[in-house]
Nucleic acid binder design. Structure first.
Lengths: 343, 343
DNA sequence: ATGCTTTATGTTAACGTACTCATAACCTGG
DNA sequence: CCAGGTTATGAGTACGTTAACATAAAGCAT
């Protein structure tokens, strides 16, 4: 019984040795042809390529990775692919990865179970990844104590800074300052806040930016409302405010969807936007869904965030290796849901 | 100079050999401990585990894959991650993969370049994948002639059937029949169509369903309108119809976003929905973005689609290997944008 | 012709893992 | 006290690739 079965049956994938045998050359010559290296006779090259074609040769990722120790892929761990934040993260990282010829190895953690960074890291480390990216949309229980695996770049996408891990995120605190300053400049002071669920890291920082803006100007802060990011929750909050707060002149909703709901509620309650109440959101996510989107909002450059995340997870040769905290500023987009307050 | 450098420097990843040397056992014993195999002395096991811990051992994905010829990952190739269809595909497949302990290797093709199935397959084949899934949202130039790589499961997510490749998709033709039948039952006949861009496969089948429904009832078909899936394009189409067609009683928009835009346009032009005109969409995608979503639409079970795609791309042992064409039916969701036509 | 470079090709080793087989130590029952 | 088993461990090998080195042939200047 031959140790290496002749591969006519197709039971085993076609390797370079199979091609070499078919073309009557050494396996190393096949490798040279496969990688387009020089010093191969043109006639030989064609013979080898013909054999590759005929046998359906597919280079072994495992063999290659084992050999040169790199996977050309970056691991991405998120808890729910469909959440707007995660989706845009995937998109940004995917295009950054493509620019560098890398793939993304995506693992979705259970949407329901709580997930620890240690657990996520453990799972990702068993996969073909040169770096690990973890989206932490809610604070992990082991965030403070977490130590990244040595020898593999790790980046957490979150606003919280960490002493031993590089963190990257859009500036979910700064976006609030942009919006609040815009409202202050128009003359608003009574600015209510409709936030997302309080476990959300994005929410925590957006709310902190709202609160700090008011405190810095010594404006008394009314109770923030809590939604669930959906337009319906924004509607409910907006209705509540329309009914209970006739002193407010502006609403800051922590995302565009809730802002859109809030606007609908205000109008249903006889309040005009922006004449009676100004409304702002964050994300610039409505365009596809709403005609004539007029919402003043903040847009983040998600591709830049993707690039930053990627570069730090898979550092180029000669990178410093110091852990940093990168916050990418958003850009204020003024449309027509904000105006000077009524006098 | 030692051939295998002692790994104090940490230049090379820690291998089982390193752990074995530290624990004073053979590499094979380390393998047994790592995989939880029996016949290891409890004391030895603990010694090995301690060494693993101390050195930070991470099992080599490459070595393991090379050894047993499987990657436990499925390749997914899409052209644009953010498109609603692709996003939901990723989500569905991700959860199916998780159920089977697999990861997803995601490759985003250039959004601008036209992409061929051969090119996509070639790129995916060089990655650590046990199966290949290609999202074909527009007809690839080589669709007819395409032959999948032998020895690796291939699935194309599209409505077009293929003689040599399994194709899976939500039933973008059947959804039209569901909606049209609903409108017919209410008494509508003059039903206009606002489609997506004509290169979109989903659009082609949704439109075909609209056309065939009318033809089957011998209803004269008015010219379909073409949008770009966005609410604004739906608004423009809706406005055009409001101004030019006073005989229509219903609009079928090929997705919810355009339907939402069309509704806004109708109302801006003094037409009531559903009293004057009924409107339906597809996807059930508005809930997060619009408060009090009342749109009659079709919802697809995207997780089921993800499971089907996954199962056929990475067949279990004992699968037939026959190529099939699977179309997963949607479900009609009747809300309040449809009613009997005015008499 | 002789030595030197260039070109084409082959040989060997190494990457990390897990399977198969071998071996040694330890039991257990007669 | 030995045959027959069980348990713990190690040795060897193969998976497919590429880098480094080796060899052989051919061209070319002296």
């Amino acid at each position: 019984m031959a140790r290496r079965p002749s591969n006519d049956t197709g039971s085993r994938p076609v390797s370079m040795v199979d091609v070499a045998r078919a073309a009557g050359v050494s396996q190393q010559t096949v490798s040279r042809v496969a990688n387009g290296l020089p010093n191969v006779n043109e006639q030989t090259r064609q013979r080898v390529q013909a054999a590759m074609q005929e046998l359906g040769f597919r280079p072994s990722y495992a063999g290659r990775s084992l050999r040169d120790g790199r996977y050309h892929s970056v691991g991405l761990c998120v808890n729910d692919v469909t959440k707007f934040g995660n989706l845009t993260m995937i998109d940004g990282i995917a295009s950054a990865a493509r620019e560098r010829g890398c793939a993304i190895t995506l693992v979705e953690m259970s949407k329901t179970e709580e997930f620890s960074l240690a657990e996520a890291t453990r799972r990702m480390a068993a996969l073909p990844v040169d770096g690990i990216i973890i989206g932490m949309s809610r604070l992990a229980p082991d965030f403070e104590t977490f130590a990244p695996l040595p020898g593999i770049g790790t980046v957490i996408v979150t606003m919280y800074a960490h002493p031993r891990v590089t963190t990257v995120d859009s500036d979910h605190y700064g976006c609030s300052l942009l919006l609040m300053d815009h409202l202050f400049e128009l003359g608003h002071e009574q600015i209510r806040f409709i936030g997302g669920p309080s476990f959300s890291v994005d929410e925590q920082f957006r709310r902190a930016g709202w609160r700090d803006s008011l405190e810095r100007r010594h404006i008394k802060m009314a109770e923030p409302l809590e939604g669930d990011w959906s337009a319906n929750s924004g509607y409910e909050a907006g209705r509540y405010l329309a009914e209970h707060d006739r002193t407010m002149t502006a609403i800051y909703a922590a995302n565009d969807q809730m802002a859109n709901g809030a606007i609908a509620a205000l109008r249903d309650n006889g309040l005009r936007v922006p004449e009676d109440v100004s409304v702002v959101g964050v994300d610039d996510s409505l365009d596809d869904f709403v005609a004539h989107n007029e919402l003043t909002t903040v847009r983040f450059d998600l591709h830049q965030r993707g690039r930053e995340v990627f570069e730090h997870a898979v550092p180029k040769a000669g990178a410093t290796g110091k852990t940093v905290a990168i916050r990418i500023p958003g850009k204020l987009i003024v449309r027509h849901t904000t105006a000077e307050p009524r006098v």
